[in-house]
Amino acid sequence: MRILVVGAGAVGGYFGGRLAAAGRDVTFLVRAQRAEELKRTGLVIRSPRGDLTLRDVKTIQASDTAEPFDLIVLSCKAYSLDDAVKAFAPFVGPSTAILPLLNGMAHIDALKEKFDASQVLGGQCVIAATLNREREIVHLNDLHSITFGELAGGSSDRSRAIDEALQGAGFDVAASESILQQMWAKWVFLATLAASTCLFRASVGDILAAPDGRRVIEGFLSECRAVSAHNGYPMGEDFVARVSGTLFAEGSPMTASMLRDVENRSRIEADHILGDLIRRGGVEQHNDAQLSLLRLAYNHLKAYEARQAREA
C-alpha cells in the first residue's frame, strides 16, 4: 500500500515516521524547506516509546507529479485544511482513501464536498507531540494511537486492508465500526477541556481550586453533550464516568493544546472546535444577557483572534 502523509510535523511526522521505519511505503508531502531539513538531518523522533532517526525520507511537493496513492493520511490544523487539500488533491485517484486525523467534524464535510464521499474515512489520533528548535519530533508521553473506520459504519475490505497496513508499526491502531460515535466523544471531551482551560487561562487543577470551577466545567460538559445528542450521538453516563477522571482531577496540570497555542500567541482552532459545535445546535438559546458557557468561551477566543489580527 502506497501511503502519502500530508506534512511531516509533530503528528504526521510521528506516525508517518513509525510507518516508514516499519518498512511501509511512505511518502511525505512537504514544502521545500521541510524537504531540505529532512534531507539534511533526517526525520528524528524523541519518544518514551523509543527514539528514531530515519534517513533517506521519501518526500514529494505539491508541484511534483506522481501516481495516485492508495491512502492519504491528513493531520494538519483545521485552519490549514484548504491549503492541504489543494496540495494533495493531484495525488488522489478513484480508489484513494483519505484518512483525516483532525478533531471535530467540519473537515469531514469539507472533504466530502471536494472528493467523492465514499473516499473519505473517519479517523482520530491520540498523541501529545511537538517540534523542538532542532525540528525534531518530541513525543511528550506514552500515548500514540490511531482509530479509523468507514463513515457509514461497519467493516469493509478497504478498512481491513488499511488496518493491516498500519498494524505493527510501533503505535496503537484500532479499526472501528462506529467511528463517528468515537469522533463525537473525543470532540465533546476536547471542547470541554479547551473551553474550560482557555476561558480561565488555567489548568484543570487550578480551575477546580476556584470556588465555582467544578460547576463551570460541568456546565461545559453538559452543553457539549447536548450538542452531540442533538446530532444523534448521545454520550451516556459511561462516557461521563470515563472523562471525569481527567476533567475533574484535583491538582491536575492538564490544559488543552489550544490554551498552549494562545499562550504562545499562535493560531487557534476556535471555529473548528467550539464555533462549529455551537453551529450544530442542541444548546438552549439564550438572550444577549445570558450567553451559554460555550458561546462565552467561543467569544473569548474570537476576541483573542481579533487582537492577534490587529497586532500582526
Score class of each variant (00 low, 15 high):
46 R>P: 07
160 R>F: 07
38 L>S: 12
42 G>F: 04
90 P>E: 04
262 V>M: 14
154 G>I: 07
280 R>L: 14
210 A>H: 12
220 F>Q: 07
253 P>E: 04
241 A>D: 01
275 G>D: 07
25 D>I: 15
259 L>C: 05
277 L>Q: 13
150 E>I: 10
53 T>I: 10
277 L>T: 08
297 A>Q: 06
199 L>E: 02
99 L>N: 04
96 T>F: 13
11 V>Y: 01
3 I>L: 15
186 K>P: 00
203 S>P: 07
82 D>F: 13
245 G>C: 10
243 V>I: 05
62 A>I: 03
166 L>K: 13
25 D>F: 15
262 V>H: 13
55 R>F: 09
171 F>Y: 11
189 F>Q: 05
269 E>T: 09
52 L>Q: 05
211 P>I: 02
187 W>S: 07
74 L>M: 11
207 I>P: 00
120 V>Y: 03
265 R>E: 03
41 T>W: 15
70 D>M: 08
229 A>C: 14
63 S>G: 09
146 I>L: 09
39 K>Y: 08
155 S>H: 11
166 L>M: 13
35 A>C: 08
102 L>W: 02
189 F>W: 13
42 G>I: 03
222 S>C: 03
258 M>P: 03
180 L>S: 09
184 W>T: 00
234 P>Q: 14
29 L>F: 04
203 S>D: 03
168 G>A: 12
229 A>V: 02
163 D>P: 00
13 G>K: 13
48 P>E: 09
19 L>P: 00
149 G>N: 10
19 L>H: 12
174 A>E: 04
282 G>P: 00
203 S>N: 03
233 Y>T: 14
135 R>T: 07
134 E>D: 04
124 Q>A: 06
279 R>I: 10
312 A>I: 10
206 D>C: 07
278 I>V: 05
22 A>K: 12
221 L>S: 10
23 G>C: 11
34 R>D: 01
155 S>I: 12
126 V>Q: 14
275 G>M: 13
87 A>D: 09
164 E>A: 14
276 D>P: 00
285 Q>G: 11
42 G>W: 03
100 P>E: 11
67 E>C: 14
205 G>P: 03
213 G>Y: 00
8 A>R: 13
207 I>N: 05
113 E>I: 07
110 A>E: 08
102 L>K: 10
283 V>D: 07
174 A>M: 14
53 T>P: 01
46 R>K: 11
304 Y>C: 06
88 F>S: 02
257 S>A: 05
14 Y>D: 01
166 L>S: 01
9 G>Q: 09
308 Q>Y: 15
202 A>T: 08
241 A>M: 12
130 T>E: 01
304 Y>S: 06
120 V>C: 01
125 C>T: 05
197 T>P: 11
165 A>M: 12
119 Q>E: 04
234 P>D: 13
244 S>R: 11
214 R>T: 06
94 P>K: 15
264 N>E: 08
86 K>Q: 11
173 V>C: 06
303 A>K: 05
